[in-house]
Write a protein that binds this DNA or RNA. Structure first.
Length: 741
DNA sequence: GCAGCCTGTCATTCC
DNA sequence: TCGGAATGACAGGCT
């Protein structure tokens, strides 16, 4: 079995190197840590966290992963892995998703490709990127876009050395090292030659692509080559001029585009950041804040249009939402219905802006509410009272004019109440206060309900969260930080919450134990319970040789053969002495006739039998029992710490999952609100149309202040007096309140 | 020299 | 009652 593991491990490593050299990206870590128990267990062995398996011994006897943490070979091992990652990085380069999306926004209105654009080929290759950006689930699709982008880059043959095969000295050295390492694998030097690869890729491109696409790809590759910088350490390429381009692009595209582009415009400023594209929540916050700002602008302009029209319409003058403003101004139904939610409505539905404002003058007048309460804004509380708005908190004034019904007020009312409860939940949970405050503002603007978060008991956590969210780290990371910081008080596992920016290179090169390891696991969303996502880090720095038999020690920890040749027997004895634990020294001093491994790991019965076979003194028996107790306790402590770390990591993962769920639910909620408001407007329009066509016996229209339409349960629409409608509306208002009590 | 981390060990509790 | 697992606390070594 061990030989099989060794064979597979070495074979996979070599195969991976070969694939990487020929441009195929193989992520071994993914396979090692994915849910593939057979392969994973073949390579790594079964998880030993909860068993008495001597995982230390097992690992210490394996090649590759079995290098002793204090062995000199460890350096070579890490060097090999680092070089492997560098080789992988040669055939791909990472561009932040942000640039891609922003470029697509720029390219769309142009409809053509400018050769002067440095990354034109990239953008045109990822033709689906535009749809991704405008899709409803931008946050999630962003990562998909990035992935696709990376594939496109690989298709383009974007390799690291940028200009005409001119290699830096580090590149040449690296290639030489790799070449020497892989010469026995049959990989010739031409594999590393950039110009050679470039030629091959050009030929491939010609074969693969045709026509215009080919032209784009060629231009893109050339543009890439002209604008790429090469990281001296990783060999990764990155665009040199993207940030400037992006700024110009985003500035060049004003908010005058079509609605789908509007969303792009909303997103593009977000995407110019350098934070992780996977941080949905951070982007969500930014999106919300930007939407807030844009909505404020839109509202300002819209209100100017609505309320400052020179038509002399009495509806459009002196309208104010200030609480103390007299309520006897007239305002159109359209205005009033949108007034409460207009901010978001306009915000999320840019097409609404195109609705004819002038039509508002033809709408029925209504009495605006001076109340900022939720119910007053959204009217009655269920659908049966759809066309039956209440007298808003008694502030409606018949003399002030007809009252506006709020057909979907009930729906919005409940929706808003749900949102507010969600808000409370978010605040109580210490959810991102920025997001919460933005939602709060949204609800304030919508419902007029004031949520004073400063008086909330969660203000402390909010402040903490805000400080973390203002940093470059993701909000999920901030939550992780909070979670981990609470655990770090234990101090036993050495778990810290800082330095979230650890990257793969550092993780691979790290020799430390938990901090680097745990962060990397968390960043890669791998199952921390397995504690095997970085097996070569798992045991690094540990010396779990306590319960190893001397033979195992000999095989695992002997110095290299060269050292043996030079060293004398004394040196070897010293080395073994140093490797022995205190209890082993004691056992040897007391001349215990069996190994500590037996003492510790034998079952009780066999252990007692073993003791009975020998004539041992009381001191020897005492020592043996101490050794057994300490040995078992040592393993127990190791398992305990491991379990504790697993628990922390699992909790962290759960927190991240919950945050993702919460962000998704918030997105869905916003979508629902948007559609709800659209429905509301449609129903209002229908209401006005129907009501406006109604005539009494004399052929005169009914007064909206005296009559209202009521939507009956059987689908019919009744015209009833306003007073009756108000009574019914009040009754329906009380019902949900009673229910809540 | 100090701080932080890792590991071993002890004491205690619980099963 | 014994054996052993689990765990908090502490100390020592290492970086």
């Amino acid at each position: 079995m061990l030989s099989l593991k060794k064979y597979l491990t070495e074979g996979l490593l070599q195969f991976t190197i070969l694939l990487s050299l020929i441009g195929v990206r193989v992520d071994v870590d993914t396979y090692l840590t994915s849910q593939l128990p057979p392969l994973r267990e073949i390579i790594l062995g079964p998880s030993s966290a909860y068993t008495q398996t001597q995982f230390h011994n097992l690992r210490n006897t394996l090649d590759g992963y079995g290098i002793h943490p204090k062995s000199i070979d460890l350096d070579n091992y890490f060097t090999a892995r680092r070089l492997l990652s560098q080789v992988r990085a040669l055939d791909r380069f990472q561009v932040p998703t942000t640039e891609v999306n922003a470029w697509l926004v720029h390219r769309d209105p142009e409809g053509s490709v400018s050769g002067s654009q440095p990354n034109s080929g990239l953008a045109l290759e990822s033709s689906s990127g535009l749809q991704d950006v405008t899709g409803p689930d931008n946050g999630v699709r962003e990562s998909e876009t990035e992935q696709g982008f990376g594939e496109d880059l690989e298709d383009l043959g974007a390799v690291a050395p940028p200009v005409s095969g001119d290699l830096t000295k580090e590149d040449i050295d690296l290639i030489d090292i790799l070449w020497r390492q892989d010469i026995d694998l049959g990989a010739g030097r031409e594999v590393f030659d950039y110009s050679h690869r470039q030629k091959e890729q050009d030929v491939e491109k010609e074969l693969r692509d045709g026509g215009e696409q080919d032209t784009w790809a060629g231009e893109g590759a050339e543009a890439l080559a002209r604008n790429l910088l090469v990281d001296g350490e990783t060999g990764e390429s990155f665009p040199a001029q993207f940030p400037a381009d992006i700024s110009s692009i985003t500035e060049a595209v004003p908010g005058e585009s079509e609605p789908p582009d509007l969303q792009n415009n909303l997103l593009s400023p977000l995407l110019t950041g350098t934070e992780s594209p996977f941080d949905l929540e951070q982007q969500w916050q930014d999106l919300m804040s930007i939407m807030e700002m844009q909505a404020m602008e839109v509202n300002t302009s819209a209100s100017e249009i609505l309320y400052n029209t020179p038509s002399g319409d009495p509806l459009s003058t002196n309208y104010s939402l200030a609480p103390n403003t007299p309520i006897n101004q007239n305002v159109s139904l359209h205005q009033a219905s949108l007034g409460g939610c207009g901010q978001d409505f306009l915000l999320f539905s840019p097409e609404v802006e195109s609705l004819p404002v002038a039509s508002s003058s033809t709408l029925l007048p209504l009495v605006p509410s001076n109340s900022t309460s939720l119910n007053s804004t959204f009217g009655s509380t269920n659908l049966t009272g759809l066309f039956f708005p209440p007298q808003l908190n008694g502030t409606a004034n018949d003399t002030a004019g007809p009252e506006l019904p709020d057909p979907l007020g009930g729906l919005l009312d409940e929706a808003m109440l749900d949102e507010i409860s969600l808000m409370d939940l978010a605040i109580e949970e210490g959810f991102n206060p920025v997001q919460a405050s933005q939602l709060e503002e949204e609800f304030d603007s919508d419902s007029g309900l004031s949520l004073d978060s400063s008086h909330s008991p969660s203000s402390l956590s909010s402040s903490e969260g805000s400080s973390s969210s203002s940093s470059s780290s993701s909000s999920s990371s901030s939550a992780s930080s909070s979670a981990s910081s609470s655990f770090s008080e234990e101090g036993a596992v050495g778990y810290s919450s800082d330095s979230e920016t650890l990257d793969l290179e550092e993780a691979e090169g790290a020799v430390g134990y938990q901090p680097e390891y745990s962060k990397f696991c968390r960043m890669s969303y791998q199952d921390p319970a397995q504690l095997s996502c970085l097996p070569y880090l798992e045991h690094v720095g540990h010396n779990h040789t306590y319960n190893m038999a001397p033979s195992a020690l000999d095989s695992a920890d002997l110095p290299p053969p060269s050292a043996l040749k030079k060293g004398s027997k004394e040196k070897q004895a010293d080395f073994l002495d140093k490797q022995m634990s205190r209890d082993e020294h004691r056992a040897r001093a007391m001349k215990i006739p069996f190994t500590n491994d037996k003492i510790i790991n034998l079952p009780v019965e066999e252990f007692n039998e073993l003791l009975s076979k020998y004539q041992l003194s009381e001191a020897q028996l005492s020592l043996i029992r101490d050794i057994r107790r300490r040995g078992k306790n040592k393993m127990a402590a190791q398992n305990c710490r491991k379990r504790k770390l697993d628990t922390i990591l699992n909790l962290e993962r759960d927190v991240e999952d919950l945050q993702r769920d919460k962000a998704r639910l918030l997105r869905e909620k916003v979508e629902f609100l948007r559609s709800l408001r659209q429905m509301k407007q449609k129903v209002q329009s229908l209401y006005q149309e129907v009501f406006g066509r109604l005539r009494d016996e004399n052929g005169r229209p009914y007064s909206p202040s005296q009559y209202a339409l009521q939507y009956a349960g059987d689908g019919s629409v009744l015209l009833i007096p306003r007073t009756m409608a108000d009574q019914q509306a009040r009754r329906q208002e009380r019902k949900p309140k009673d229910r809540r009590k």
